[in-house]
Amino acid sequence: MSVTSDKIKLPPYIEGTSALLGSTVATAFLQPFDFLKVRLQGSGFASSSGNSSGSGEITKIKRVGVIETCKNVLKNEGIKQFWRGSSPTIVASGIAWGTYMHFYETYKNILKTKQNVTQLDTFNHFICAVGASASQVFITNPIFLIKTRMQLQTPGSPTYYTGIFDGIKKTVKIEGFKGLYKGVIPSLWLTFHGGIQMSSYEHIKYYFSTSSSKSLDSLNASEIFIASSVSKLLASTILYPFQVVKTRLQDERNIPNQNNVKVYNGTKDVIFKILKNEGITGFYRGFVPNTIKVIPNTSITLLVYEEIKKMFQLYYK
């Protein structure tokens, strides 16, 4: 695979900074959709009465959709609740994208040097993306944990988090340091999300580049939008069930109670109980608001990322 590469080779930390800024802009606008997604993902839990016996059994409850969830939040919690957890979301998404693109470009440069090529093939892009995702998971999992719990918590809860640092402090106090890494197993499975997304993204960009005889850094906004949208939709659809499993494990309602009983006991238990009580569709709770959110989120992030990169390239000339 050969195509004209970027005119100026930027350091990986510049790539990371560009992605961080792009993610911050996108997340600030689209936070309500992320909130709805998490609420719907977590709505498969038993009602409080279902846990009162201390048996840990799941009580089947009526599932609500996007519109009813919106009405319930507006009626009982107010419009501000849609931005609950926005600060950890912005921080987590910014750090996740920043560290991800830093490691992604680092691994790409290593393979390009090793193979003595200017452009990697789809498989090597996939390997670099999976490696970058795995690297950033261990950095960002605690922040995403707090973000998820802040979006699912209810006022008056004994473990109510008022912010990122308060959430980290209470989590460590109640669950220990390892509590910050709940959901890390499905998060590691989700590293294939980055592999599918970025390898598809690079491949689609390469197609546009070769079909129009342009360099990769000369692609226009519509081409970047199409490449980012298609690649994100593909990755999200295939691996969305792992997001639901991760959310169930990270929810504050899965913290052991006084009888040391949890709703779920590990990844396998989550999968089994979702299948038993909700069926296959349970793995796609919140898929609609997630899709509405991730397509523009990723598109805005990558568009801003590419534009900021161009600014840095002018500076480095």
Rank of each mutant, 00 (worst) to 15 (best):
S2C: 10
K7C: 06
L10H: 13
P12S: 09
E15F: 12
A19P: 04
S23P: 00
A28V: 07
K37D: 08
G44M: 13
F45R: 06
A46V: 00
G50H: 10
S55V: 06
I61P: 02
V64C: 02
V66N: 08
I67Y: 14
N76L: 12
G85Y: 00
I90H: 09
M101D: 11
F103K: 14
I110L: 12
T113F: 09
F126L: 13
G131H: 02
A132F: 10
S133D: 15
T140I: 11
P155Y: 01
G156I: 14
S157A: 13
P158R: 05
T159K: 10
Y160N: 04
G163N: 12
I164H: 06
D166N: 13
K169Y: 14
K170T: 00
V172S: 07
S187T: 09
L190P: 02
F192Y: 04
Q197F: 11
S200L: 05
Y201G: 15
S212L: 10
K214H: 15
I226D: 02
S231E: 02
L234I: 14
L239T: 14
V245H: 09
R248T: 07
L249A: 11
D251S: 14
N257C: 05
N259A: 10
V261C: 08
N277D: 01
T281P: 05
V288Q: 11
P289E: 04
N297T: 07
N297P: 01
T301K: 04
I308C: 06
